[in-house]
């Protein structure tokens, strides 16, 4: 095997090791690569900024699984922080079983930074089984969909639920998701029929699928994977989990592109040699 063949068949363990090294370096020594804010992230930020804390209630949908959480959880943390910073009352609900536990993590994060009162400023309603059917059920009667919240408190007597009898009483929905149910279900059951302002935070791989709905205006704002979280952190002025990992992503992408180029150059030189 000549060196050109070898360059086309680099052992996967070499690739894994180099990638690990490249991902670890910025975790310990951040490079501070500047980040340009995407328009779809800016729109989510603007929507939260436009909410009136005295009147508006936001619905914070926690529909992600542990598998996709590295991409979406940092988004949820920073948007919740922004909502708490602005004093917007926020109802958290999940249509995915892991959602309520992630909501508790978000509440824990936010309560360390802001003086929020559970049941008045924030509430974690818990998980409602039934996927798209459950979303429709919740939309039609949010006040009766849960008798008790995730912490076993009666929902009806909570100040945050006062006046919330239909999804149209919610000013803004932000839906963090990794799959089903996701924006498709919300667009069909909530945004379409009732016209409630809807934004989403999704994993990077789902972005191309969601773009037609962003362009049509049905999804009013979109956080695109980990980068979306990092951009939002820049906007809020609170660098966190997202920003810290963007340098690692940059170097990881560069390494993959480097390997692709090496493989292709070796392929063409080999082909030329053979002719």
């Amino acid at each position: 095997m000549n060196w050109l063949d070898k360059l086309q068949q680099i052992d996967r363990r070499v690739i894994y090791t180099l990638l690990l090294v490249v991902l670890l370096i910025p975790m310990f020594r951040p490079l501070g690569i500047p980040l340009e804010v995407n328009m779809t992230t800016q729109k989510v930020y603007d929507l939260v900024q436009a909410l009136d804390p005295a009147r508006d209630v936001a619905l914070f949908v926690m529909d992600y699984s542990p598998g996709g959480s590295p991409d979406v959880h940092p988004q949820a943390l920073i948007v919740a922080e922004h909502l708490a910073q602005r004093g917007v009352r926020t109802i958290m609900v999940s249509f995915v079983d892991a959602g309520p536990m992630f909501a508790e993590q978000v509440l824990d994060h936010v309560s360390k930074k802001y003086d929020i009162v559970y049941g008045t400023d924030f509430v974690n309603l818990g998980y409602l089984a039934g996927m798209e059917t459950a979303i429709k059920n919740f939309a039609e009667a949010p006040h009766t969909a849960f008798e008790r919240d995730f912490r076993n408190n009666p929902v009806a007597s909570m100040p945050i639920m006062a006046g919330i009898t239909h999804i149209t009483d919610i000013a803004f929905i932000i839906d963090f998701q990794t799959g089903d149910p996701g924006y498709n279900a919300f667009l069909k059951q909530v945004q379409g029929p009732y016209g409630v302002t809807y934004a989403a935070g999704i994993v990077t791989v789902s972005v191309p699928n969601a773009m037609p709905f962003v362009q049509s205006g049905q999804i009013s704002g979109l956080l695109q994977g980990l980068r979306g979280a990092a951009e939002y952190e820049v906007l809020v002025g609170s660098p966190g989990a997202g920003a810290a990992k963007m340098d690692a992503q940059s170097l990881g992408h560069l390494l993959i592109i480097g390997f692709i180029i090496v493989g292709n150059v070796a392929y063409f030189l080999n082909k030329k040699k053979a002719v």
Binding site: R12, Y16, I260, G263, N264, Y267, F268
Partner: peptide, 15 residues
């Protein structure tokens, strides 16, 4: 991420 890195190196050839 590791599988994607290895797979893209092997699959992305301008054939």
């Amino acid at each position: 991420a590791f599988y994607v890195a290895s797979a893209s190196y092997r699959a992305f050839r301008a054939r």
